[in-house]
Amino acid sequence: MNDAIIKFENVTKKFGDVTILDKLNFEVAKNEKVTIIGPSGSGKSTILRILMTLEGIDDGIIHVAGKPLWHEYKNDQTVPASEHHLRQMRKEMSMVFQQFNLFPHMTVRRNITEAPIHVHKLSQKEANDLADEYLDLVGLSEHADKFPSQLSGGQQQRVAIARALATRPNIMLFDEPTSALDPELVGEVLSVIQRLAEKHDLTMLLVTHEMQFARQISDRICFIDKGNIVEEGPPEEVFTAPKEERTQAFLKTYMQS
């Protein structure tokens, strides 16, 4: 892919003795919506966390929007990225966490405006306008002055999505966004993500167990097992006619539940 906005080349990641990602090659095109599925421990979340610079890599190279992520080019040499470089790269992406990770001591509005004001140097008014826009998008405009502890899990996750969007990223990362929610609250979050997938020019990378949902919104499904892509393709292909045995076995256990 020439216009790959994310490109993993032979990326290896180890935690101690355990190899989580094994010479992974992975690409995402601009504005593509990709869902990564796979068993626990397969490395799905790790891919997202590496992209968000929360984890480093042991080998290989990653490019985001044409620029190296965990490396820098200095004087024709490839060196590990400095903190300064990482800070620049982070502006391309935003992440929504499984546990929401809202700042409990700030109101909803402040959660959303804090980074735009203090990281992206927007004015208070500009940030407030942004907050209003995204609160409207996620359907929580009346809750702007509440604290996270006063909201339900589904509402908190929607605020987290608004907070991530407010930094205007090119890439949105969703790490099991509904896994920590009570079943009746999952729908409201999924519909927000769906709205994003439909209406916005946004590259989205989603890790989830909500197979039906993944089928609906994704351009491509990636099945990952033991640190490598086993199979990938359009949802109809992967879900209805998986080619690999491992994919079939995995989907069987999920479709049963």
Partner: peptide, 13 residues
């Protein structure tokens, strides 16, 4: 720890 992660994801120093 997740507070630090959220802060990092939002690119706070």
């Amino acid at each position: 720890d997740n507070q630090y992660e959220a802060a990092k994801a939002l690119d706070f120093t």
